[in-house]
């Protein structure tokens, strides 16, 4: 840890601080300036360019009454809860790799996990778009061949009443508003993210072998080992991934934009706040309102992060 120095000495070494100036200038220009510009423009009716009209808090008042924005937040919260459950496969994968006795196989599994990361995210999205193709996508083919489609038809007829699953009719994953949110949840199956697995694995590998030996002596089952030893000891990593997941889900809209377009798909069913912000800016030309939505999103993320920091405690 750095030792504190006196103010006089710090001022005497002022030349050293010049080394920080270029990075600081870049951060101010490329991170802080756009943010301040967004705050500034959120109080204007701004259509891009120089022409703007001061409207005060009108954009925020409008956002408060905007039902489509409200719906977008509902969708994104559904996705956050789904993504919470989607963290489980990554944790399970990390535990499985960690428990492998052979270090060589541990290494190869880590490599196998990391290799798909070289594929650009956009390519993965395009592949998933093909998966969802109603006529030629593998998803519909698998459901047909495995007979799961019959189950979905039964569910639709007796429970859901959506009229989207029917014999002889391809399932319209991205063209029926009922299936848009389920499609966004299904996306990414089996939900094992390389970054998440590696972060959890790093946490697991810091657990000493003596803990496991003591557990073995006590006759603890493998699942109990996970529940009482491994999971509590990787809670720091879980909390980190939770924060990153929430921020990413709240801000993200690339998936929705690519799969559904700027309107958010049929009936705007796939609209999330990030996509709505994009829609307002580039489809409707309301840049000022889009900035106001950005500010609201920022506040949400701040509040969620605060709640996460305060209530998801790590028992050290």
């Amino acid at each position: 840890m750095a030792l504190p120095i006196s103010k006089r000495k710090a001022l005497a070494e002022w030349k050293l601080y010049l080394f920080v100036v270029p990075s600081l200038a870049m951060i101010l220009t490329f991170s802080y300036f756009p943010a301040f510009s967004a705050v500034y423009h959120s109080f204007y009716d701004w259509r891009g360019g120089d022409s703007k009209e001061w409207v005060g808090a009108e954009n925020f008042e409008r956002a408060a009454m905007d039902s489509q924005l409200g719906y977008a937040f509902v969708v994104v919260f559904i996705l956050i809860i789904a993504n919470l459950f989607k963290m489980v496969p990554s944790i399970a994968m990390a535990v499985v790799i960690h428990r492998l006795k052979s270090e060589k196989w541990q290494y190869w599994y880590r490599v196998l996990l990391v290799v798909p990361m070289i594929v650009p995210g956009l390519v993965t999205l395009f592949i998933w778009k093909f998966f969802f193709d109603p006529n030629f996508g593998p998803l519909n083919a698998i459901l047909d061949v495995t007979g799961l489609k019959a189950g979905l038809i039964w569910l639709d007829a007796h429970l859901l009443g959506w009229d989207v699953f029917a014999e002889g009719r391809p399932i319209p994953w991205l063209s029926s508003p009922h299936l848009i949110v389920p499609s966004m949840i299904i996306w990414g199956f089996p939900w094992i993210g390389a970054v998440g697995v590696l972060i959890f694995l790093a946490g697991l590998q810091s657990i000493g072998t003596d803990v496991y030996e003591a557990a073995d002596l006590d006759g603890v089952t493998p699942f109990q080992k996970f529940l009482y030893i491994e999971f509590p000891l990787i809670l720091t990593q879980v909390r980190l991934m939770l924060i990153l997941m929430m921020i990413g889900t709240l801000q993200g809209f690339g998936l929705q934009l690519l799969l559904l377009g700027p309107e958010g798909g049929p009936s705007g069913a796939g609209m999330v706040p990030g996509l709505y912000m994009y829609n307002r800016a580039f489809s409707a030309g309301e840049f000022g309102y889009a900035c106001a939505i950005g500010m609201i999103l920022f506040v949400f993320i701040l509040v969620l992060t605060f709640i996460n920091n305060k209530y998801v405690r790590v028992q050290k």
Partner: peptide, 27 residues
């Protein structure tokens, strides 16, 4: 622009099998 966004979002109803015209018109 606004009407086009809502029209694009609701257009799928025109091509549904069950009461497409009524559902699209109402929406």
């Amino acid at each position: 622009p606004e009407h086009k966004i809502s029209y694009t979002q609701n257009q799928y109803l025109v091509f549904e099998e069950f009461e497409p015209l009524r559902r699209f018109t109402e929406k």
